[in-house]
């Protein structure tokens, strides 16, 4: 069965999480090999998750860390 752009769109969350079945993965790969628009979209979505994975985490400021640790009566 041939996968269409709409089919892939519905499966995008699983595709990006790497949780497609082997058969779905193969069909997605076949579709992406011939569909430039979907390839661009998938690459950009992967880019979004990569950007936030690398830069989205924040550090509790040291002053706040010390203050909260004191309030909790623990060492940090």
């Amino acid at each position: 069965m041939t996968m269409t752009c709409d089919d892939l769109d519905l499966l995008l969350p699983e595709f990006l999480d790497g949780s497609l079945t082997t058969s779905q993965e193969e069909q997605a790969a076949v579709h992406l090999a011939t569909c430039q628009q979907c390839t661009i979209e998938v690459n950009e979505l992967e880019g979004v998750t990569k950007l936030y994975k690398e830069h989205g985490m924040l550090e509790l400021p040291n002053e706040a860390r010390q203050r909260i640790a004191r309030a909790l009566d623990i060492e940090s």
Binding site: E59, L60, L72, I74, S76
Partner: peptide, 16 residues
Amino acid sequence: RTVSELFDAFANATYT
């Protein structure tokens, strides 16, 4: 895991 270890491990994640 002590509270102190949990705080060190999860303070940044909770803050985020």
